[in-house]
Amino acid sequence: MSVESTSSTDAATTGTRLAGRTAIVTGAGQGVGEGIALRLAAEGANVVVAARRAETGEPVAEAIRARGGSGVCIETDVSSRESVQACVAHTFERFGGLQIMVHNAFHGGIPHKLEDADLDRHWNAMSRTGVWAVLHTGQAALPHLRAANGRGRFIILTSPSGVEGSANIPLYSPVKAAERAIAKSLAREWGPTGVTVNCIGPVAASPALVAAFERTPTLQGAIEARTPLGRVGDPESDIGSVALFLASDDSAFVTGQTIICDGGSFLGL
């Protein structure tokens, strides 16, 4: 049985929960990042679509504007400290503040055997766009998040694999685990300044997952069969809504946590 998700049209209904706030969403040119960007913008946030290539980021920013929201694209390479700093500086210059940093961008994740893993091919990109990028985005955003008077939010996209390991992409798991450990540490370190740090572990119909479905026709059915809610998540209405909660005042007393948003497939926390 497959239960329909709330449609993207419903999710696009405008609200004001983030009115006057500014968010950067990395990797927002597609998939989960795009869904989060659209959802935050629909609640009134100025959203910076931080994408590696303007060809993917600009259409998302345009979609935000077409819905009546405030969105701009800034080309950003999250593996580069300088590029992330420039993105944050441009954001501040444009909007006068930054209250929400969402690090979602990720590159890599090629299936491999651990014994044969080559660090250049199977590790570098994941380490740089995952863990190093948490360093870059967190450091660049922190002064602004601290200035947000208790509304500073650092949200990191991780994975259930960061808890339970992975038989298919074994080096993906330590990268995602490291992100969770950093989030817990920063929750304790930054809590006194009123900045919260949380993770989302999504399973959603991102382009990567859709491509995997096309490569392996039985995969979607297998995932849905083991998922209590019987479907794969929608990037905007399912994952974006959890990001909205973490970005909003509703989550003011939540920090250091990981919300697994996968329809109940993983129950290990």
Binding site: G162, V163, G165, P170, A177
Partner: peptide
């Protein structure tokens, strides 16, 4: 520390 702990599970 956490990355190594979870890499154990993958391995």
């Amino acid at each position: 520390a956490e990355a190594i702990r979870v890499m154990v599970k993958s391995a």
